[in-house]
């Protein structure tokens, strides 16, 4: 149990530093940035206390906000996908899969993994950019940024989950 908690906290700090030091400075085509710290929510163990998970997601988003001077936009969007993650997984997978104790996201079939990642990433991005621009008149820019940054993030996440996940 302790080992598991340590791993989660290590990932928590690791993703903050990775996002702030590396991925906030990519600026593909001038403004497209991947938000890979989302991976922390994607990979969080399924069999765990849901309240703690929600609170930690909020905290992770807030830490990113502290670094990027952005108020609470990352906290709000990350908390949102942390909340919809469980309903999404139950609708994507059969119950037997979810009950399996050693279930890991990377064991999902590729199509389901892709839709799991895409839905979460796109909903995160649309909340994030809506809060950042904070006006309906910018809906075109919000959608453009959501789409472009979203594709970049999805590609990076799919590749890295395939590469770095434990194989049996």
């Amino acid at each position: 149990m302790n080992n598991k908690l340590f791993k989660i906290l290590f990932q928590f700090i690791g993703f903050i530093l990775l996002q702030v030091i590396v991925f906030d400075n990519i600026h593909l085509f001038g403004y497209v940035n991947p938000y890979i710290y989302i991976a922390w929510v994607l990979l969080y163990p399924l069999k765990s206390e849901r309240g703690l998970f929600l609170f930690l997601s909020f905290l992770l988003g807030l830490c990113i906000d502290f670094f990027s001077n952005s108020g609470g936009i990352n906290a709000a969007s990350l908390l949102f996908i942390a909340y919809i993650r469980f309903p999404l997984l139950t609708s994507l997978l059969r119950k037997a899969d979810l009950d399996f104790l050693l279930f890991h996201v990377s064991n999902m079939p590729f199509i389901k993994l892709l839709s799991y990642i895409s839905i979460l990433v796109l909903s995160h991005h649309i909340v994030l950019f809506s809060l950042e621009y904070f006006s309906f008149s910018n809906i075109g820019i919000i959608l453009k940024h959501t789409f472009l940054s979203g594709i970049f993030t999805i590609v990076l996440l799919v590749i890295s989950i395939q590469l770095f996940s434990p194989r049996k």
Binding site: L54, F55, F58, G61, L62, D65, N69, S70, G71, G72, I73, A75, A76, L79, F80, L131, F134
Partner: peptide
């Protein structure tokens, strides 16, 4: 928690 985050966001605007 979402309300707290929104509060920070509005404050930042």
């Amino acid at each position: 928690l979402e309300l707290i985050a929104l509060l920070f966001t509005i404050q930042s605007h």
